[in-house]
């Protein structure tokens, strides 16, 4: 069936990069399935409105659940979008062997992920309801929680990206930055999907 060849033992960085890119895309596929499931949960419970408890009316003990504006979630998507563009700026720097552009882009992209994370946590803390107050409130925290988880992961990745850029580790190849760009794109899309869902109350 086969014959032996004399392939070099070590692989070209582009081959490794291509494989790693596919791996990240496949993991994103799993994350997409989860994000779409969250949208399904949101619209299913909204559509069912079981016992009129999607947005419960006020009782003697508990105030009425007032939905939040979807603008907060949209701001998260916009911040993510800026982060994505900045990472792209860094990627262009890496391709052009411009170390200053690479480092600057990676640093500000990291800063955007931290700003997004802090803002998302602030939104969750200042929501005018608790997660016990009906199906909408539960779903709101689920979507916000996914955003926060994504942003925390992005902050970790972006910090590593910036540090590696700073140390000059992308001088010979830049597939790490390209892969991180794929993640940023999904992060932005995911935040936008969350904002889209929350615009239906």
């Amino acid at each position: 069936m086969s014959q032996e060849t004399t392939h070099a033992h070590h692989e070209h960085p582009d081959v490794v990069g291509s494989r790693n890119r596919l791996g990240v895309i496949l993991i994103i596929v799993a994350d997409v399935a989860m994000a779409l499931s969250i949208l399904f949960v949101y619209f299913y419970l909204k559509g069912q409105n079981v016992n009129n408890m999607w947005l419960p009316a006020a009782t003697e003990e508990v105030p009425e659940t007032v939905p939040v504006s979807s603008m907060g979630a949209l701001y998260i998507a916009i911040i993510s979008g800026f982060g994505m563009l900045l990472n792209r700026y860094a990627l262009q720097g890496a391709k052009a062997k411009n170390q200053a552009q690479l480092t600057l882009g990676a640093m500000i992209a990291f800063a955007m992920s931290v700003i997004g994370l802090v803002y998302q946590i602030q939104q969750m803390n200042s929501a005018p309801f608790t997660m016990r107050m009906g199906a909408y409130a539960s779903c709101y925290y689920l979507i916000a929680g996914l955003n926060a988880l994504h942003l925390a992961l992005t902050a970790f990745i972006s910090l590593g990206n910036w540090n590696r850029a700073r140390l000059g580790l992308y001088k010979t190849d830049h597939w790490h930055v390209e892969i991180i760009q794929v993640w940023w794109i999904w992060m932005t899309v995911s935040a936008a999907l969350g904002a889209f869902a929350l615009s239906f109350t």
Partner: peptide
């Protein structure tokens, strides 16, 4: 939360 609890929607 009340994802599965009909009393909470």
């Amino acid at each position: 939360t009340t994802f599965y609890n009909p009393a909470g929607g």
